[in-house]
């Protein structure tokens, strides 16, 4: 009932064991080189300049290739050539499992089809994101998976509204937040109305009667819900080659003025309308790319 990676699925199916998976991962680690190693091998960059890019990456959430272009060590064309070389030599976990003898080619094909079927409920559907926002595919994934998990995990029926750019997130009963770092830098926020918080708490606590639960437990349930959503977003993003690290969740209590989008960030808001007329929101405060 969650986004999985292929190796995990195979273990759950009893097709391989943990030892075979570790052998295949070791083979992947030996074979799949980082882009810095590829540009060095292609004599496009020196070790000194590679180290300078790595140093500079410590202060920014930018990929190696983009940073190297920004710093003038690579041209766009060179980066493209290196990415093609990297892609052509890349082996996926399924191929690695065949190479270490843990799975036959026929078995791989059969389990890939089963895996595709298993993960169908989490295929990302189109969500309109305003033009000019970088990493659109990630924000589409974030919005779509949040909506899917509101239905599947919290059992909430709702009507999604279109994405809006905002300066301020409206005040609600509570707001739960998780930070994203790695391939992107952003804050993920889910506001809650009283009803949506109750729906989520019932699902997380797996109890129908939550009337006597303290507010702290209800808030904790919403934090755990966004932890589940964001963990699954990180898993889905990893399938597309993005690395997203998530922080532990935290809450903001109701404030008169809501939450302002910080400077050098763009606020994306996705309203979620409940059938009883209440509304709550998913918001993403995306850190702007440095010019």
């Amino acid at each position: 009932m969650a986004v999985k990676f292929f190796g995990q699925f195979l273990i759950e199916q009893g097709a391989i064991n943990h030892l075979s998976l570790l052998k295949a991962i070791s083979l992947q680690e030996e074979t799949n080189r980082k882009i810095g190693a590829v540009v060095y091998e292609m004599e496009m960059m020196s070790q000194v300049n590679i180290a300078k890019v790595h140093q500079s990456q410590r202060n920014a959430d930018t990929r190696f290739g983009d940073k190297a272009v920004e710093m003038g060590f690579l041209t766009h064309e060179q980066l493209q050539q290196a990415l093609v070389r990297q892609r052509n030599s890349h082996i996926y976990i399924g191929e690695a499992l065949v190479k270490v003898g843990a799975l036959s080619k026929e078995g791989l094909e059969r389990y890939l089809l089963k895996f595709k079927e298993d993960q169908k409920p989490y295929a990302v559907e189109k969500v309109e994101i305003p033009k000019g926002i970088s990493n659109q595919e990630i924000w589409e994934m974030v919005a779509d998976l949040t909506k899917k998990m509101l239905v599947r995990v919290a059992d909430i029926s709702f009507r999604p509204g279109p994405c809006q750019i905002i300066d301020n997130l409206p005040s609600r009963t509570m707001v739960a937040e998780i930070g994203f770092s790695g391939s992107v830098s952003a804050r993920y926020l889910l506001t809650s109305s009283q009803n949506s918080r109750n729906f989520i708490a019932r699902a997380i606590l797996q109890e129908d009667d939550i009337e006597h639960e303290p507010i702290a437990i209800l808030d904790d349930s919403v934090m755990e819900f966004i932890n589940i959503v964001c963990g699954n977003i990180a898993a889905k993003a990893a399938q597309s080659g993005f690395q997203i690290n998530i922080s532990p969740p935290k809450t903001h209590q109701q404030s008169e003025h809501g939450i302002a989008v910080p400077e050098k960030h763009t606020g994306l808001m996705f309203p979620i309308y409940l059938s009883d007329g209440e509304v709550f929101e998913l918001a993403i405060f995306v850190k702007d790319d440095p010019l």
Partner: peptide, 13 residues
Amino acid sequence: SLGGVGDKYSEAI
């Protein structure tokens, strides 16, 4: 919730 992230799963194992 990070069980589906291949790197995290394999690091744990």
